[in-house]
Every structure is written in C-alpha cells, then in structure tokens.
Design a binder for these strands. Structure first.
Length: 778
RNA sequence: GGGCCCGUGGUCUAGUGGCUAUGAUACCGCCUUGACGAGGCGGGGGUCCUGGGUUCAAAUCCCAGCGGGCCCACCA
C-alpha cells in the first residue's frame, strides 16, 4: 500500500492558527445560546488596559478559556464575556506623566477625554492578543467596559439601593490618606514596605514627680497630636506612674500615663506615646480610650496650625526640625537605626498618612458571618485558597470607605443641600455626572435650591465588584438574569493576589444587593515568574511578551506548555526553552494524524483484533481520567496524561505494532479494517480530549479528516469500548518491544530486517501475528 | 508575632508507606532516514532540603530545624 496521506502539509504551522481565528469568528459555537438550559457563566477578570499585557495574565486567560471549552463539551452553553476594567488611578497617573500635566490644574472634561483616548489605544492591543491566544470569549455582544455609561449607571444604581437600605453612610473618621494621589484609600489597598528609619528616645517630664520619662518614637513630628502615654500594666519600671501625667516637650501639654497591654516592655523604653495618628494602633487606642484627636497633618501633606511653629512643613521636614530643636534642648537621649514596615499605597507606592476625613462608607463589619458562610459553600479550585479569603474576612474591623477624591471614576450620584445638608440622590436609571449637571428642584427639607454637586468618585472596586451582575444583566433584562445568574453555574477565575479585593468585595456587594452568593466556583491561578523563579520586572530585564512568544511558537505551543507546566493554583516559571519543548508535542501529534490519514476512514468494524482491544481499553481508561481532571479544572494533570499516552504508548508502541496490518502487508482486509477503525477512533478521541487545551491544531486536523465543522461543536467523547481488557499487559508490551529493538541494535540488524531466536512471552501470544510481522521474528 | 503553601538530577515534573525513584527538557555517543525539520538505542548526571522518630519497610507518616514564596498583624 502506498503512503498517501489525507493531510498533505508536512508540518503544523502557527499560521494555520490565524486562518482558524477568522473561521471561528464567523461561527456560533462559542456564543451563548439561551435555548440551552445548562448555562455556565465565567466572570472573567476584566484586565486593565496597559501598553504591554503581562505574559502571566495571558496565561491565566488561556486557562479560563480551557474551562470554557471543557464546559461546552460537557453540554453547557457558556456566557464568557470579555471586558475591560478602565476606571481609576493607574490611567490618571499615566496621563499625567505622558501628557506632562497635573490633573488638578486640568479641566476635568479635558482630563477625562485624554484618559479615554489612551485607554482606547491599549484596549485594542489587549483584545488583539486575547484573540490571537484563541480565547473563545464574547468580544461583541457581551463585551463591556467598566467606564461605559451603562456600566457606570449600574454602579450608581447600586449606590442608591444601598444608601436607601441604610448600608451606606457618611462619617468623619481616620482614614488612609495618600498624599501623592490626594485621596482616601481602603485598607485593602494598603501594602507594607520595609524601610530603614530612625527611632528617637525623647525626654518627657512627669508632672507629679518632676522626673524624666523617656519615650521612644519614630515620628517626633506628631508630638503635637500626643494625647496619651501608655505603659504595660505589668512593667515594674512604670507601675508607680499609672494615672500620673507626662508633659509633652515643645508643646508643654499634659497627657495621662495609663497602663495598657499594647505597650511592649521589650521594645524601645516600654513607654509609648499615642498620637493622632501615627499608625492604626493609635487609631484604635484613641477610639477605645475616648480621646479627642488633633489633626496634625493636613490633606496637603503639610503640618497644620496644631503643630505651631512647624506649620506648613511636610512631615519629613518637620521631623528634621523637631529633632534639631529637641537636641538643642538636650531632650534626645538616644538615636537608633531600625528597620520599620511602613504603610504604602499599592498603586503609587507612596507612604500613606492616617488623617481624619469626611467620607462615605459601606457597611461590611456586619456581614462577616454571611461572607464566611459563602466562603464555605463555594467550590474552590484548588481548595487551599479558601483559607486566604477566610483570613481576610476575619481581619476586617472597620467599614469600607468608598469615596475617592479623583476624576476618572464613577461619580457618586448625589447633590447636597448647601443650606441644610439634605442629600439628594439621582433618581433616574441613566449615568449622571453631578458636577456637570445642575439640580433645579427644591430641597424637600428646607426649600432651598442651592445644591452642592458631589464631585468625588467611587472606589473602583465599587465598579469591578459587580461584574457578575453586569454581565448577567441584573436590572436590565429580567429573563436573561434569571437564566444566567439565578439558574446558571457561576465561576470566578482570578489570581490569589486579589482575593482580599476583587473576590471579597464581589461577595460582599452581591450579597448586600441581592442576598445571594455570587459564585459557585472560584478558580485561582498562580503567578508567572521567570525561568529562575523571579518576578518579571523591567529592571531585571527578564520580561517576556505574549505576542512575541505567540509569533515565534504559535498559541497552541504556549497553551500546551501551560497544560504541561502549570499546576492548578501554583506559581510557574516561564521558560522559552520549555515552550519550544511543548511545540515538539504538536509536531508529533501532527505527524501521527498525517500517518493515520493515509488509511480509510472506518466507522464500524465487526470484530476487533486483540491488539486493537488493548489500545482501545487503555484509551478508555485515559478518557475517564481526563474527564475527572477536567471536572476539577485540572488541565495540568490532564495534559501530562494525554501527552504521555499519545507519545509513549500510542505512537511508540501501538502504531509500530499495527503498521504492517494497516498496510495489509501480510494481512487480509478484515484484519486491516480493525486497525483502520482503531487508528481513527483513537485519533478522534485524542483530538477531542486535547481540544480544550490546544484548540487550533485539533480543529485543523478535525476539519481535514473528520468534518466540515469545528471540533469545538463536539461533545465530550463517550466510552470508546464496551469492556476494557488486557489492561495489565501494557508494560509487558512496551518492555518486549524495547527488548527486541535493543537486541537488533546490538546485533547490528536493521529494524525492518528479520531476526531469529526471540521468543514471544506467553502473555503476549494473543498478539503474535502483529508482533511477528512488526519485528519480523523468525 | 501568627497563618498558609512549597522544597525530588542543570531546569521542570510524577510518585503520599513496599521492586534498583517517573518522565520531560537540555547535554554526550551510536544507529536510522519509507508517519516524524524527526525517530530508535544507549550514556552521564539525584545526600528525594537537614536531623530525629514511627515501621519489617519512609521521597511518602510524625516531630524539630533550615531554605524559598505568599498572606495577615499594632512593634511605637
């Protein structure tokens, strides 16, 4: 029989992928089909558009796509919207830098226009990479942007609903203040950074005894805000001072000395000054002890009147000055270096200050028990990340400040009566910018028409925490919402670094708004590191770009590598060498298909040869294992298993043993037909099993050999053989083949030449004819 | 300070009590070029982080430590 393959191209080419993307865009298998009752919803993280899309993100999104494809094969229709998160500080910072301007001195409308313009540019770039990766999401009908009027309208609507439920309130409280961004931020946006600092031991006088009391502090510029000194209750050195008073140097105010557990006798001098506000423990002690705070640092990042002669200096300048003055008066007894952890803003890395501010708050402390219950009901992939969420929920102690003093975000939809303070909330359903719109009606309380429009925006997590409600059209399409949210199976895929923000806030907000758990599944992906396990950064020069890797190796090589290398929930090291290695599997798969394509497509066979029963049995076991792993979204295990079967068992052993029979080289047609059937059955099944991971090559082969239509319309394969036999024999077969090849090699006999004197082991006798023909045993 | 995860040849990885520790990748040698820009055969390369314990038997279970990563927390 001549070798006359149905697949002519000798090699898989990444260019085929681009043809398929074109084809897919004109097909509908990836679209949501509301006639299907089984709906699976993927609440894809909308990426923040940026000049370069991080390779780690590209990898995470590929994993999400694998889930979408698995679910479609299992008979679901999938709501898989592609969205873009476009609100917030990063774009504002970029525009300030790129356009070389200051946000505060730019007209707001002009500034918004610039933000949009830059966002649009990057949005296109990110979407192109997503398409090139083969993400089977919806880029048209269900595409969304969080800064669109319809999205922002929904965010505003939720503000109104929660306000009316009494869950949002306005209050003046100590808040995290970012002096660089000029705004309040939430605890979830605070990170800590190690910094070398200095601690000063300062002499206070005890009023009652006239003796010195030495206090250690890293922030002497806050002396003006000092309202209390605490010592540990059991600290013998200070026991007689309880209830006495300390005189604060420079300001000469007197503050009480109280025993308190939080003073650590081992640290510094054991006596601590409590100021408004050095850190969050100060805040807590002020509240607990009922102290009246003094605003020492203002929102302009300068010391206030309360600081006396240091007014107008920044905290750093003031610290230098105060230290100088104290030294001149001989009040500093010691200075030491120490490493401290200082709180910084996660977006701009600036040190935050704690300043009392009037802001809007969303209640969250009361919801902790409910959220813990949600956390326990969710199916986690992998399970261990449940703990991360629980830890965060348990650490929440104060409500969420949601107002931000920024421009590019969703406006808080209110006007305040200048006369009586009455708050008017925008009552319509569309998107409103109060700072651009005059309110004409009379205040229902005092009759005034003099309104102060709210200029502030909402924390961007207020927008992004309701993506699941937006994509399921809550309040916009009742039937759609019922089908997708209420009856659908909902998945949240995301990275572990945003569990305390995106996941936490989503569960909180959806719970408050509709009293339901936002998700059924949470899938956590790890982070992409470089080949040596280091974070990628421009300064290290180890950044990889997804578009370059795709260009070189194709999306399927990258995706196969993801399958082979990335354990569920684990961080992974990205190495180009390994991606090249993954490409070899695609070459192998292509060649297997090309080889099989030379034999007639045979759908039925009356009787299977024993060897064929063996490989189909192995295939059936593989199919079951892959199904189980796919159900847990573990394509890593599935990919390893599939490669190992395809390459090491099917290609290396079965294909070799069946070649002559398939070519009718010493076999009759009935025997050959059994081989043809088995070859095609196995290839088809392997293509189907691999399709979620490598959607391009599998579809290309499928369309060439088996159908005019896409492989991605096919359901997950049914069992391939009724009864599995010969399972225990695989190892014996591979060992025997290796032994023969080895012996021939030692004796200098070519593989296709005959050899004498090799006995077929008893348990392999059932395959005798195939074995003899393959190895030409005589 | 608390919690979680991880530690297997250069690199990545399988293996959760039982043959001489799996496979990939990279490297070296030989052979082959009739599905294979590849394939076959072979090779070097491992204190399975360390130490102790349980057991007839430990990479695997237990304890302690070391190293790496992450999260939380008030060290002024």
């Amino acid at each position: 029989m001549e070798f006359n393959p149905g697949i002519e191209e000798k090699r898989w080419k990444p260019e085929f992928e681009e043809e398929l993307i074109e084809k897919w865009s004109n097909e509908s298998w990836w679209k949501l089909d509301l006639k299907n009752k089984k709906i699976f919803v993927i609440d894809t993280p909308p990426p923040y558009p940026a000049p370069f899309w991080h390779i780690g993100a590209a990898i995470s999104y590929s994993m999400q796509d694998m889930i979408a494809r698995i679910k479609r094969m299992q008979g679901y229709t999938v709501l898989y919207p592609i969205g873009m998160d476009r609100n917030g500080i990063p774009i504002e910072m970029y525009v300030e830098k790129y356009e070389n301007l200051d946000m505060w001195s730019t007209p707001r409308e002009e500034f918004e226009r610039l933000c949009k313009q830059h966002l649009d540019k990057w949005t296109t770039n990110t979407i192109n990479i997503m398409k090139r990766l083969g993400l089977s999401g919806d880029y048209t009908e269900h595409y969304y942007e969080t800064d669109s009027p319809s999205y922002r309208a929904l965010t505003q609507k939720t503000f109104k609903i929660l306000w009316e439920k009494g869950l949002i309130y306005e209050a003046e409280r100590p808040n995290n203040w970012c002096p660089h961004c000029n705004t309040t931020i939430a605890d979830a946006e605070v990170e800590y950074k190690e910094k070398q600092g200095e601690i000063y031991h300062i002499k206070f006088k005890v009023r009652e005894t006239g003796k010195d009391l030495i206090i250690a502090t890293t922030r002497p510029e806050l002396l003006a805000g000092c309202k209390l000194v605490i010592v540990h209750p059991e600290d013998e050195r200070y026991k007689e001072l309880h209830g006495m008073h300390a005189v604060v140097p420079i300001y000469n105010t007197e503050v009480e000395i109280r025993p308190h557990r939080e003073a650590d006798p081992e640290f510094g001098t054991g006596a601590v000054m409590i100021c408004s506000y050095g850190d969050s423990s100060d805040v807590r002690i002020f509240r607990e002890q009922g102290l009246e705070p003094v605003k020492v640092i203002g929102t302009d990042n300068k010391l206030t009147e309360a600081a006396g002669k240091y007014k107008g200096l920044t905290p750093e300048e003031a610290r230098r000055e105060i230290v100088k003055d104290l030294e001149e008066q001989g009040l500093i007894v010691k200075r030491e270096q120490l490493t401290q952890k200082i709180p910084i803003h996660d977006k701009c890395r600036t040190r935050i200050e704690i300043i009392p501010m009037r802001e809007y708050y969303l209640k969250q402390v009361d919801f902790k028990d409910q959220l813990l219950e949600y956390a326990s009901q969710i199916l986690w992939h992998p399970e261990r990340y449940r703990q991360h969420l629980e830890n965060w929920i348990n650490s929440v102690t104060i409500d969420w400040p949601i107002s931000r003093r920024r421009y590019y975000g969703t406006e808080i939809p209110i006007w305040k009566c200048k006369k009586c303070g009455y708050i008017h909330i925008y009552e319509k359903d569309d998107y409103v910018k109060p700072w651009k719109q005059e309110l004409k009606e009379k205040c229902p309380k005092c009759g005034s028409t003099d309104w102060e429009p709210e200029w502030r925006t909402l924390d961007t997590w207020m927008d992004s925490s309701i993506t699941i409600l937006y994509i399921t059209k809550w309040l916009r399409d009742k039937e759609f919402f019922e089908k997708c949210f209420l009856n659908g199976e909902k998945l949240r895929p995301q990275g572990y670094e945003i569990i305390r923000t995106w996941l936490y806030y989503s569960l909180l907000r959806v719970g408050q708004l509709i009293g339901k758990r936002a998700f059924d599944h949470v899938f956590i992906n790890g982070m992409g590191l470089d080949a040596k396990g280091r974070k990628m950064s421009k300064s290290l020069g180890n950044v990889l770009y997804p578009e370059e890797l795709i260009e070189k190796y194709g999306a399927d090589s990258l995706r196969m590598w993801i399958g082979l290398e990335c354990g569920i929930g684990e961080n992974y090291n990205i190495s180009e060498e390994k991606i090249r290695g993954a490409q070899k599997f695609l070459v192998k798969l292509w060649n297997i298909a090309r080889f099989i394509s030379a034999f007639p497509l045979t759908d039925k066979v009356e009787e299977l040869e024993e060897l064929d029963k063996w490989i189909l049995g192995e295939l059936e076991e593989l199919r079951k294992r892959v199904l189980k792993n796919y159900e847990e979204f573990d394509f890593h295990k599935a990919a390893l298993d599939l490669r190992s079967f395809t390459w090491n068992i099917f290609a290396s052993h079965y294909l070799e043993l069946v070649k002559r029979r398939a070519r009718m080289d010493g076999f009759n047609e009935k025997e050959a037909r059994s081989a043809w059937y088995t070859l095609h059955k196995t290839l088809k099944t392997l293509l189907l099993l691999l399709a979620p991971i490598v959607p391009f090559i599998t579809d290309k082969i499928w369309r060439q050999l088996y159908s005019k239509e896409s492989i991605h319309k096919e359901p997950f394969p049914e069992s391939v053989i009724e009864t599995v036999t010969h399972r225990d024999i695989t190892e014996k077969i591979t060992e025997f083949n290796s032994r023969v090849w080895n012996t021939k090699k030692e004796k200098g006999i070519k593989f296709y030449e005959p050899i004498q004197g090799i006995e077929i082991p008893e348990e392999l006798r059932i395959f005798e004819k195939d074995i003899r023909a393959t190895h030409r045993l005589e």
